[in-house]
Design a protein around this nucleic acid. Structure first.
Length: 575
RNA sequence: CGGGACGUAGCGCAGCUUGGUAGCGCACAUGGCUGGGGGUCAUGUGGUCGCGGGUUCAAAUCCCGCCGUCCCGACCA
């Protein structure tokens, strides 16, 4: 039983100055966590109970799915990470340290290498596969900017599993098993979530989905179609394409457009010249970028910006992408800033990409590659050809859904899980092979599946709180029932004690506010801030044989006869 | 790494402009009143004013450097 009279807890009346988001503010105020350094937090008793409840649910679901738990050190030698090149690739995000003999070590940011090597050390036959193992482990990443309390920390707990299969079909099955297990897990955690298509990114691999918990304070932006259920990370969103309808225009017509280096000024000049009717979306924006040191040109409609993150995610193999700067323009005099058009890309030796909206047959107003000159009727397929289409333009709310063409919405969310098919990258670099049924050596294919355990505490808090405090789901709360005794007589305290013991005899967890000196107001405020789902008050109505029952979610309250309160509470909890 | 804000008691803040005894609220301790919404009165405890250097008779306050924290952006298996 958690007794408020002795519980190691001090609630705060004021929001901490360094907390912005609700979960951070409330977890600190209610005495669940305390900051130790940027992105590093301690768990106090209430927080640790809550954290362990979440961890327990995740573990139960992983075990139920047939996955096996292992545990690795957080302190790791650098050699395995050199084999996969991540000792260098991870750069400054890696916490590195040396032992007394100057040997180099790291604090594990993720454990692909360890899993792969562990399997390699034990297994060598296809008969041992499939295998799925997981860990729940503290991870360390020296994030450039930790933020939002425990949503993005430098030390955090993650559940991650890895699947090992002989072939793609096996990998697909392991992936689906995780998908199912994750749906069950997050449902039990009481989270609202969407499963969205994601980019597998630098890790390679074929299929990838994120589990996103919608929250205004989330860091991830995703697209959702309420009509057909399509959901995708902004980077992975596919453009809905309308084929070009209309007649082929006349030949390219060059125009004098003095002093019009921007889309806005170009539209104004066109409308002045031709008596109106031109919009920014009739113009073609030619964005020049440096991709790993190579100049490329990307075409987007004039009314849209290039989304660099989206573009980079959709240009496979490109590691560094940035816009042309003045120095780049100075080096390439033929590229006139503000007057670039795709017509001469070949001649300029530029790789030319187009957003999918720039369909073949469409014609545009664009730069003439001469200062103060633009051109119209510049037609894709006739006047220029692209090296490829690439998702480049920013996504906007109201854009067409790629599946059903209805307008999509854009929302923010916290990434709580990510599943993806890794493929053979790690198995190859660490030489994880098994013999197949014909005695031939085959590289194993892997999947990687993560859940942010400590982040899930914040995600639940983020989705489940009100102006008074936290509102925990039943399975997660520090205690299912929060009993408050008020008054100066012994009667309500004695009665509350008996009730608490009774509940415990049914296996119901209880927090009892048995503080004699605290005023009723303080106890009510604390109960609301702490957020246990059921509150029972032993106070002035006890004289009439009644107690007050409150349900924290919605703050509905009613009087219940003392003789009935046990049954009432048990039915609310289903015990 | 770019932009912005900040660092004074466990927490939230004032004091700094114009240099001179370090202050308020919460929390904490003791006592009284109160006892269904963070109540009240009284008396207290608690401070390397982020760190280092400089100016000065004298620095929380002015100057220089560093460190740390938060927010926006870049970044984020």
């Amino acid at each position: 039983m958690l007794r408020m009279s002795t519980l190691f807890l001090r609630t705060l009346r004021d929001d901490p100055a360094d907390a912005e988001v609700a979960s951070h503010r409330l977890l600190v105020r209610a005495g669940y966590i305390r900051r130790i350094a940027a992105g590093i937090y301690s768990w106090l008793p209430l927080g640790y109970i809550t954290y362990r409840n979440i961890e327990r649910i995740i573990r139960e679901e992983m075990d139920a799915a047939g996955f096996q738990e292992v545990h690795f050190p957080a302190l790791l030698p650098k050699e395995p990470y050199e084999s996969t090149n991540r000792w260098t690739e991870y750069g400054k995000d890696l916490f590195r340290l040396k032992d007394r003999k100057e040997g180099e070590y790291l604090l594990g940011p993720t454990h692909e290498e360890m899993f792969t090597l562990m399997v390699k050390g034990e297994y060598s036959s296809y008969k041992d596969l499939p295998l799925i193992i997981y860990q729940i482990q503290t991870k360390y990443r020296d994030e450039p900017r930790p933020r939002s309390g425990i949503i993005r920390g430098r030390e955090f707990v993650m559940k991650d599993s890895y699947s090992f299969d002989l072939d793609d079909e096996g990998l697909a099955r392991s992936y689906d098993r995780h998908r199912e297990a994750y749906i069950k897990t997050f449902t039990r955690l009481g989270l609202n979530f969407n499963i969205v298509s994601a980019m597998s990114g630098a890790m390679g691999g074929s299929r990838s989905e994120e589990f996103l918990a919608p929250a205004a304070t989330g860091e991830d932006t995703y697209v959702l179609c309420n009509a057909c259920g399509y959901a995708a990370n902004v980077e992975a969103m596919k453009t809905h394409i309308e084929p070009f309808e209309g007649n082929a225009p006349g030949p390219i017509e060059e125009l004098d457009t003095p002093n019009t280096p921007t889309i806005d000024s170009l539209v104004a000049v066109m409308n002045e010249k031709f008596g109106g009717g031109y919009k920014a979306s009739d113009t073609l924006k030619n964005v020049l970028l440096m991709a790993d040191g190579e100049p490329i040109s990307v075409l987007v409609p004039g009314d849209r910006e290039v989304d660099l993150k989206r573009l980079e995610a959709n240009l496979p193999g490109v590691k560094e992408l940035r816009l042309f700067d003045d120095a780049d323009f100075a080096k390439r005099k033929e590229l006139v800033k503000g007057y670039v058009g795709p017509q001469d890309a070949k001649r300029f030796g530029l790789k030319l990409y187009a957003d999918p909206r720039i369909v073949v047959g469409s014609h545009w107003i664009t730069g003439a590659n001469k200062l103060n000159r633009h051109a119209r009727f510049v037609t894709h397929g006739r006047d220029f050809a692209v090296d490829g289409f690439v998702e480049a333009a920013e996504v906007r709310a109201g854009d067409g859904c790629p599946q059903c063409s209805k307008p999509v919405i854009i929302d923010r969310a916290i990434e709580i899980g990510h599943i993806f098919q890794l493929g053979r990258k790690y198995a190859e670099s660490l030489d994880l092979t098994v013999l197949d049924s014909e005695g031939k050596s085959r590289v194993v294919t892997m999947g990687s599946y993560g859940i942010g355990v400590s982040r899930a505490v914040a995600a639940v808090a983020e989705q489940s709180h009100d102006e008074l405090g936290l509102v925990w789901p039943m399975e997660i709360a520090p205690a299912k029932v929060h009993i408050v005794a008020t008054g100066k007589d012994d009667a309500p305290f004695d009665s509350a004690e008996r009730f608490a013991s009774e509940l415990e005899s049914y296996g119901i967890s209880v927090m009892l506010d048995d503080r004699r000196e605290a005023s009723p107001g303080v106890k009510f405020k604390d109960a609301e801030l702490i957020g246990n789902p059921i509150i029972v008050i032993f106070g002035k109505s006890l004289a009439d044989g009644k107690v007050e029952l409150r349900v924290r979610k919605g703050n509905e309250k009613r009087e219940v006869a003392l003789t009935e309160i046990l049954d009432e509470v048990r039915s609310l909890i289903n015990v």
